[in-house]
Amino acid sequence: MQASLATLLATIPEISLCSSVDLYGGTGPGLPLLQIQGESGSATLALQGAHLLSFVPKGGRELLWLSPKAVFAAGKAIRGGIPLCMPWFGRRPEEGLPAHGFARSSNWDVSEVEMLSNGDIKVVLELHDSAATQALWPHGFVFRLALTVGRELSLDLSVENLSGAAAPFSHAFHTYFAVPDVKEVAISGLDGCTYINSSLEGKPRQLQVGDLQVQALTDRVYLNVPAEQIIKHGAGQIKVSSDTHCAIVWNPWEGAAKMADMGQDNYSGFVCLERGDAFDHAVSVVAGGVYRACMSLSE
């Protein structure tokens, strides 16, 4: 363990460092993980990608889904939890760029840990530009994610553009929510919103009427959404709140069979409800400017 990280963690006994091999098996060194055991909730966080893998509010159930086939390897995105898709969202194969950006497969540094007065635990991680990132996205930057674990989980993201030119930017908190059966899910908070239906040829724009029920392959980008959505399922509900403008709802259905790190029998255990700013709501971060976004999850 690097000395600075060891010093930080020594101040908060409720945070410990382990390997993904310890928790999820596999071979090799695995990836370094932080385990957070607070008074009101617990979480597991991979330093690669500042990637939250688990969140359990005290007395509650696991809110996040992690694929049983997830791969924990350097430079490879982890299937499940909350990947940070940025500084762009989506696939850009024509440009030879990695899908959903590089943040989710980069190693972040822990810059701060704190026990708050109410017993919640705060962890701040940072990612700075390097020669490797400049080759993909030619901007100086600092990405910061402040994660607070209590009965509610909150994520506060800031993107500081340190370069002399505006930086095109889009992102999503690509959250995989654990549900007993995706076919029994109903999502409220999207009624009346226009969405891009990416599962249909031509990606037509359609209007959501009532709650969304996921009964087949679903890949929709909802625009100008309200701050809060609620995922209702057989074991209860999950509240999602964010100041971002998009909500992406995704489940690959039988297409999961083509994903080696998911498998055909596992799609029914999750639904992705991602909040972010992408597509019509992509932004340009001015030179020297800062973009901020937040999201919170609770039962």
Rank of each mutant, 00 (worst) to 15 (best):
I78N: 11
S4M: 12
Q48D: 00
I15V: 05
A227E: 15
T44W: 00
R79L: 06
D129N: 14
P87A: 07
Q208M: 14
G269L: 05
A282D: 12
A70K: 05
K203C: 13
S20P: 00
A73R: 14
H171Y: 07
I238F: 03
S154G: 02
T175G: 01
N118M: 12
V240S: 07
K58M: 09
L162D: 06
P168F: 10
D219W: 02
I36M: 08
E39I: 14
F55K: 02
Y222Q: 05
G263W: 01
I82T: 12
T133C: 11
S268F: 14
L190Y: 02
A216C: 10
L31N: 08
S67K: 05
K122R: 15
S54A: 07
S16E: 04
V179Q: 11
S42R: 12
S198I: 02
C294Y: 00
L31M: 09
S19V: 04
G60R: 00
H174F: 00
L97W: 05
M86Q: 10
L145R: 02
F141E: 08
W253P: 00
G150K: 02
P252E: 14
T44D: 01
E126H: 10
L33R: 05
A227W: 08
S117P: 03
I231L: 13
H128E: 07
W137E: 04
Y195M: 04
D191T: 09
T44M: 00
V240E: 08
T11R: 11
F270H: 07
V149L: 12
D243Q: 02
Y267Q: 09
L34W: 06
H281T: 02
Y24D: 09
